[in-house]
Amino acid sequence: MKRSVPDLMNASEPLVMVTAYDYPGARHAEAAGVDLILVGDSLGNVVLGYDSTAPVTLDDMIHHARAVRRGAPNTFLVVDLPFGTYHTGVTDAMRNAVRVIQQTGADAVKLEGATPEVLDVVGVLARNGIPVMGHVGLMPQTATAQGGLKVQGRDEASARRTLEGALALEAAGAFSVVLEAIPARLARLITERLHVPTIGIGAGVHCRGQVLVYHDLLGLYEGEEKKLAKRYAELGKEAREAIAAYAREVRAREFPTKDQSFVMKDDVLGKLY
């Protein structure tokens, strides 16, 4: 049974959230029993091949979120509002959020930051019945302005800004706040101060939930494991090995075998000569 906003806010066990960007990924996540699925604008990096999330459009998000909803009809679905879709005023933000909810069947939207302008958007959306998940700490959409993809909140000013931003998001009406790439002790303090759930990624064990990117936790990429992620499988390696085995069999004429081939009766074939 799909979780509701009050259910998530009052959950006694840590919440499990994972990203998904397509129908099969969503089916896997729902079958595994996660609490929430996030269609993150990280799809720009992990699915579309961009260098950042900035090029991702609202149409991109809607396209992928619709596929995810078809794959996970019974899981609470959160969809990122991409860069630029909530920065030009509450009217545009409301229009774009409504599009996401109506066209994807999402249960909530997520946006980054806690500037006065963003807080106004959170308040308007929440008052109009659109659940909003906030996001502080490292914010990929504006990472360049933060000095790159770096841990936030290590000095007093940055830590205070992160804490105050999380508190302001709750006050504005956010039902949950993602804490990304901040010191674990700061995340614990924020979690203790907030009444709504915190969802951590690179923020330590004391958050009230955790989120990982689908491709990170399944090991679908080569290279060094990210500090804020953990690989629970090496599917990328297995996929490469499987494709290489297929290629070898094709070149050696070992595939397809009779098991993958269809037959024709001799008398029918004879009439073709």
Rank of each mutant, 00 (worst) to 15 (best):
K2M: 03
R3P: 05
S4A: 12
V5C: 10
P6A: 11
P6L: 07
D7A: 06
D7H: 02
L8D: 10
N10I: 06
N10T: 11
E13R: 04
P14S: 14
L15S: 11
L15C: 09
V16N: 04
V16D: 04
M17W: 00
T19S: 06
T19M: 01
Y21P: 01
Y21L: 10
A29Y: 12
A32Y: 13
A32P: 05
G33N: 14
D35I: 14
D35P: 11
V39S: 04
V39N: 11
S42A: 10
S42F: 07
S42C: 10
L43T: 02
L43M: 14
G49R: 03
M61S: 15
H63F: 15
H63N: 14
H63S: 15
A65D: 11
A65Y: 07
R69W: 15
R70D: 13
G71V: 07
F76G: 08
F76T: 12
L77N: 11
V78G: 05
F83P: 00
H87W: 08
V90E: 15
A93C: 06
A97D: 08
R99K: 14
V100H: 01
I101K: 14
G105Y: 13
A106W: 00
A108Y: 02
K110E: 09
K110M: 10
K110F: 11
L111M: 05
P116L: 02
L119S: 00
V122Y: 09
G123E: 00
V124T: 14
L125K: 07
R127V: 09
G134R: 01
H135M: 07
L138P: 10
T142K: 13
A143R: 15
T144W: 09
T144V: 05
T144L: 12
A145I: 11
G148D: 07
Q152N: 02
G153C: 08
R154E: 15
D155F: 04
E156T: 12
A157P: 00
R160L: 12
L167H: 01
A168S: 06
L169W: 06
G173F: 06
F175H: 01
V177N: 01
V177F: 03
L179C: 02
A181Q: 04
A184Y: 03
R185P: 13
R185N: 11
A187R: 06
L189Y: 08
E192R: 08
E192F: 03
V196K: 03
P197T: 09
I201R: 02
G202K: 01
G202F: 05
G204W: 12
C207H: 08
G209F: 00
V211A: 05
V211W: 00
Y214R: 13
H215S: 03
Y221H: 03
G223D: 04
E225R: 08
K230R: 15
Y232V: 03
E234L: 07
L235S: 06
L235Y: 07
K237A: 15
E238K: 01
E241V: 02
E241N: 10
E241M: 12
A244V: 12
E249G: 07
V250D: 08
F255S: 03
K258H: 12
D259G: 14
D259L: 05
Q260T: 08
K265V: 07
V268W: 12
G270W: 04
L272P: 11
